[in-house]
Simulated assay, not measured.
Amino acid sequence: MGEAPEIQLQVPSEDEKLNEDSVEQQTNGNQSTTITQQRTYKWWLLMTIYTFFLLSGQSVATLLGRLYYDKGGNSKWLATIVQVVGFPILIPLYYLPSYKSSHTSNITTNPPSLLVLSGMYFGLGLLLAAGCLLYSVGLLYLPVSTYSLICASQLAFNALFSFFFNSQKFTPFIINSLVLLTISSTLLVFQNDSSGSTPVPRAKYVIGFVCTVAASAGYGLMLSLTQLCFEKILKKQTFKAVLDMIIYQSSAATLMISVGLFASGEWKSLGEEMEGFKLGKSAYVNVLVWIAVGWQVFSIGAVGLIFEASSLFSNVISTLGLPIVPVFAMVFFHDPMTGVKVISMLLAIWGFVSYVYQHYLDDRNSDTGKL
């Protein structure tokens, strides 16, 4: 019989083991980097979409709101309710493919009770209803220039509330952004004043001034509280959470404003107002409908930016839209585009870029810390 073939077992050396471990770690590292990049790209895509929704919705709704007042509308309660009543058009969005948040660690297995959720939505809805009414009164009694200038103060209010409620940190780029955007809005008051405005009675001017300041403070508070609710109560960041926040909050606000509309008796004169609208009854209805649609598009963008970034960032983007409106007014209403408006717009863009650059630095520092 021949000899059995000799079987040799090759045992990997220590160097080979180290090389295999190194290759495996490198592969895992590459996969982790790819996932991180995908999440970063998704975040910036969402930020772009939400920013577009906010700016486009705000611009359209503001221009149509001005058209409503200019062409014969004078109901402050109707101008208020159209800012929130359009929420049913968002309900079909529940049936879109769900958006999975990249922040899975924030998802809680113990959802808040129905009582807590009801109190949260009712409280935010009350703030929303009060703010919309105050803004409507302010726009009714104040020149557009003064109104826009006071609305820019919501940045300062939001920054103050974010400091206490959301642990907002102020860096040189953020401060630069706030200063530039505030100056950008302030420049518009000089342009409007130089073009002349209808004198406003002293009493109405004071009422409009106080209402707009209070509305700006309330809006800044509502944004900070909304961010706080996402962090402390909902504890999740999903597209459904955004829809829930908008729809339930708007539902509560619509109910409160409806009570005010009927209690004030303004509903009795709406028929005469529609008949006397300078553009016709059909245009009257269309203007109100598209104001409602515009504000709901704005709400999606605003709330989306809150939980993707912060309430202060959402407010910065909102303020960016103030000098954008005159550009569209030039196109649709043939308003002159003067040098002051151009400078205002450039400063707003500069402030926006400054804030976005700070987020870029934060992301880069965060990725560096993970290495």
Rank of each mutant, 00 (worst) to 15 (best):
I306T: 13
S366W: 01
D335N: 08
G321L: 07
I343N: 05
V356G: 00
V297Q: 03
T338S: 15
L361S: 06
V331K: 11
S354Q: 07
I317Q: 05
L346H: 06
E275F: 01
I324H: 01
H359N: 13
F313Y: 10
F333I: 13
F307Q: 15
A309D: 01
S366V: 10
S310L: 09
A329P: 02
I324D: 07
S314L: 04
S354I: 08
D367T: 12
K281M: 10
V356C: 04
D363S: 12
V353Y: 05
D363K: 06
I324E: 09
Y357R: 09
L320S: 08
S344R: 01
G369Q: 13
Q296K: 07
S311M: 06
F328N: 09
G301N: 03
L288N: 09
S318G: 14
S366D: 14
L312Q: 07
P323W: 04
T338D: 15
V297L: 14
K341N: 08
E308G: 01
G321M: 07
L347D: 02
F313S: 06
V327Q: 07
S314F: 01
G276N: 14
L347F: 07
V340G: 03
I306R: 02
V342Y: 03
A283K: 11
N315L: 08
L312E: 04
S344N: 02
A292D: 10
V289H: 03
I291Y: 05
L305M: 12
S344G: 07
Y360T: 15
G276Y: 02
I291M: 14
H359S: 13
N315V: 14
E308F: 00
I300W: 04
P336E: 11
L320A: 12
W350G: 14
L288I: 11
I343A: 10
V340L: 07
A283Y: 03
R364V: 15
H359T: 10
M330K: 05
V353A: 10
I291C: 14
P326V: 13
V285E: 05
W350V: 14
L305V: 09
L288V: 14
P326S: 11
K341V: 15
A348Y: 00
V342N: 06
N365P: 00
L322A: 10
T319W: 00
D335F: 00
